[in-house]
Amino acid sequence: MVTTNRIRNVAFLSTYPPRECGLATFTQDLVQALDAFDGLIKTKVIAVSNGEYYNDQQVMAELSQNDKSSYLQLAKKINESDIDLLVIEHEYGIFGGTCGDYIGELIKNLQVPVITTLHTVLPNPSFKQKQVLSTLGAASIKVVTMARNTMKILQNVYDINAGKIEVIPHGVPFRLLEPRDKLKEKNGYASLNIIATFGLISPGKGLEYGIEAIAEVVKDHPNTLYLILGKTHPCIKNEQGENYREKLLDLTHRLGLDNHVRFIDKYLTKEEIIYYLRLCDIYLTPYLSKDQAVSGTLAYAVGCGRVVVSTPYLYAQELLGDGRGLLAEFRDPNSIAKCIKYVLDNPDKKREMELRTAKLGQTMLWRTVAAAYFELFLKLTGDSKNAGTKVS
């Protein structure tokens, strides 16, 4: 397509703060990073709403998540606007209908070219999950994935043309903070080994295995504290209340770990997340699903140059290769404990892993990630709204 020096108007369809979810934070960070560039890209947000109130000039429109007619109305509004390109941030559970299939109402009535950014890529989807993502892929001029190991899955499972697929990593913020020892001292942790996990809490996070692992670790390293940072996922809380958190608390007490496991029950700001990551010695992700293609929390930990101990889900395998962390077996607290103890017993190896991780983290800073999106948008946006829908 022919490019010009005019301003391109790019809209992002996504959840957005004040909604408390990782996708909302991701979109806000990306938009803010793009807006830091001078010139040719002007960003707007279309917020996927489930009852939230938006009073933000960045939000040009709202999509009512579970109202099918809202998707058709939004297509009409976008077609009549000055939007040159729509970026759909896709995650199952964000859009209404079966497996989010209401998004099809928007796609089939839209006259503006679309990029889809994928936050979940399932190697073994249900029929409906595959149908939804394949439909998005067919309608998009580009499909952005955050991990190289998903490229073959997108081609072989979802029939997405290889030429459409772009790999742009998950972005991470940058903050200047005091050294770890100083941060520990300020928080009363000066003599402790700090293990941390953050994010919205749900059974799929496998935190019970992390707690059981700590019971083994403290036998050799009694000065260890495991911080579990985050509130219960809103969807889990609506369906099950605080059952999972209460089971974790009961397990902690039963194992005699009340002085070694601490729950911080709140939705953390980006500043708080980075603060705790910079303070910790090891970041732990004992997730249960081997198919998890992206993890924003793991990306943040890598961005902060922290040693990571993780179960070997897809994204962890990709980010923690080349000596950047340690992979433990799924649902195996002894394996997790063995990895943690190796790091604590070998400070020189820990430092080597941190340096390798920090080097990768530098490539994931938002300013670098936003530059990749910026170049992609400029390459794809021409003068004709309809032109983009025919590109394969």
Rank of each mutant, 00 (worst) to 15 (best):
L13N: 00
G22E: 08
D29M: 11
A33T: 07
A33I: 05
K42D: 13
K44E: 15
V45P: 03
V45H: 07
G51W: 08
E52T: 03
Q57G: 07
M60K: 06
D67F: 10
E89I: 07
Y92I: 04
Q111R: 15
T117D: 03
L122V: 07
F127E: 14
T145A: 11
T145Y: 01
R148V: 02
I168M: 06
G171L: 04
V172W: 05
F174I: 12
R175F: 13
R180S: 10
L183V: 06
A190P: 02
T197C: 04
F198M: 12
F198C: 00
L207S: 03
Y209K: 04
E216C: 03
V218E: 01
P234A: 07
C235R: 09
K237D: 10
K237I: 03
D250E: 14
L255S: 11
L255G: 11
H260T: 03
D265R: 08
L268K: 07
T269G: 12
K270N: 14
C280N: 10
D281W: 01
D281K: 02
Y283S: 09
T285M: 13
K290Y: 04
Q292C: 00
A301D: 05
G323Q: 09
E329H: 09
F330R: 05
D332W: 02
S335R: 02
K338E: 14
L344R: 01
R356L: 12
G361F: 07
G361E: 02
F374T: 00
N386V: 08
